[in-house]
Amino acid sequence: MLTIKNLRASVEGKEILKGINLEVKAGEVHAIMGPNGSGKSTLANILAGKSDYEITEGEVTFLGEDLLELSPEIRSRSGLFLSFQYPVEIPGVPMISFLKASVNEHRKYKGLEPLTAGEFLKLMRSKKDMLHLDTELTNRSVNEGFSGGEKKKNEIFQMAMLEPKLSILDETDSGLDIDALRIVAEGVNALKTADNATIVVTHYQRLLDYIIPDFVHVLHNGRIVKTGGKELAFELEEKGYDWIKNGNEQSL
């Protein structure tokens, strides 16, 4: 589904990603872990199409297409979803009209008719129930006045509405209490099928208690320095990132 080959990227002349290689297949859950500043969020943002980065080398293929050539909106319509680490508040844009526009753009891209108001509300209601989302939130402007946890739930709610093929969850666990974490994780798991894939970007292991990864990659200093199964996450939790940092330096 997604193939990243030797991806190098920099921002304002400083190299952040120094040759990333990653292969994600349908049905898989990958966790990308790493200390602060290792390049996790940069990787997530580049995949979604944020233009603040300069790609200096490498290629990314998503469902057979050259992902780096596509605009953010086409990436989204093709089935790529980024759950933002810091969801932006947009006063004056009502959640409902934003979401309706978003869903119908996806449908148009697939050659489907736009949903009627009734169909849309019905879809929204079912997804809201799944995430125990406060009904009142969708009557507000996008993320305006939402708590940290509500913003993250709202991201997963949008994911549920759009049913992407590849979801990238960027630090979705940060700012969540344990109950919200469980609800969000249950939502992600419920959306999991044999045809879609998930990349969970996280600093801590605790989200991985709920979303069980098939692969764990450790990102450090712009490179994936270690790849393993879910047990690698526990090992990291136990030994801390210093273990990787030191090990990495020794191996250089």
Binding site: G49, E73, R75, R77, P91, V93, F98, S102
Partner: peptide
């Protein structure tokens, strides 16, 4: 970027933000 990353085209996204 947020609106575009949800599939809304740049022109429409700008329009939404100006309306907002």
């Amino acid at each position: 970027f947020f609106l575009r990353a949800r599939g809304i085209g740049e022109k429409d996204a700008r329009m939404m933000l100006m309306n907002a």
